[in-house]
């Protein structure tokens, strides 16, 4: 039986088959793939509808995720212009929650470094300065980072109630044409 096989053709098909598996040339394979995609999607819909902890919304503004979380946690959320007014009036303290090396590369004017990653030691050093009635305004690199919010939780645990989260952070500040300064 092996004599009936054209080995030259077989070698050619072997290379062609490796670069383009023969299965990919068959419409039924693509139909199978489409069917599996559809079935998987339907399963996802059904399971989400029956999720014991409640269905996850199909559409959610992930670009506002940190702001939504901060508001739900009861923090005031400020935009850049309100932060700017506070900076100009010297009201409260601006706290940079990013790693310290990023703070030294450029921070909001008047901000102090309170890196969330080193919060315990950084807070111990800063605590004597954080006096007065003004808010503690936390920020990090942009609307997607959550160090500012996490720092807000930490400050709340330390007994500070007037904590504001500037969710837009450095990204919103510079996008508004405001300048950064070297860290203090």
């Amino acid at each position: 039986m092996s004599a009936s096989v054209d080995h030259t053709s077989l070698q050619r098909n072997r290379l062609h088959g490796f670069l383009l598996p023969a299965a990919l040339t068959q419409p039924q394979v693509w139909r199978q793939a489409a069917g599996l995609l559809l079935l998987g999607t339907l399963l996802g819909v059904v399971v989400n509808a029956w999720r014991p902890t409640g269905a996850l919304p199909w559409r959610y503004p992930w670009d506002q995720h940190v702001a939504i979380q901060a508001r739900e946690a009861g923090f005031a959320v400020w935009e850049w212009d309100r932060v700017q007014t506070a900076v100009q009036q010297g009201a409260g303290w601006l706290l940079d929650a990013r790693p310290e090396e990023q703070y030294w590369e450029g921070a909001l004017p008047g901000a102090l470094s309170l890196s969330f990653a080193d919060r315990t030691t950084a807070f111990a050093a800063l605590q004597p300065m954080l006096i007065g009635e003004g808010p503690l305004i936390t920020y990090c690199s942009g609307p997607d980072c959550d160090e500012a919010l996490q720092l807000g939780y930490f400050l709340r645990e330390q007994g500070y109630t007037n904590v504001v989260v500037f969710v837009g952070g450095v990204e919103a500040w510079t996008a508004a044409g405001q300048l950064l300064e070297g860290g203090l």
Binding site: G40, G44, V45, V47, N48, W62
Partner: peptide, 15 residues
């Protein structure tokens, strides 16, 4: 951003 949840809900079931 608004497509992310739909992907998270369907992708594992497709897998």
């Amino acid at each position: 951003p608004t497509w992310v949840n739909a992907a998270a809900l369907t992708l594992p079931w497709i897998e």
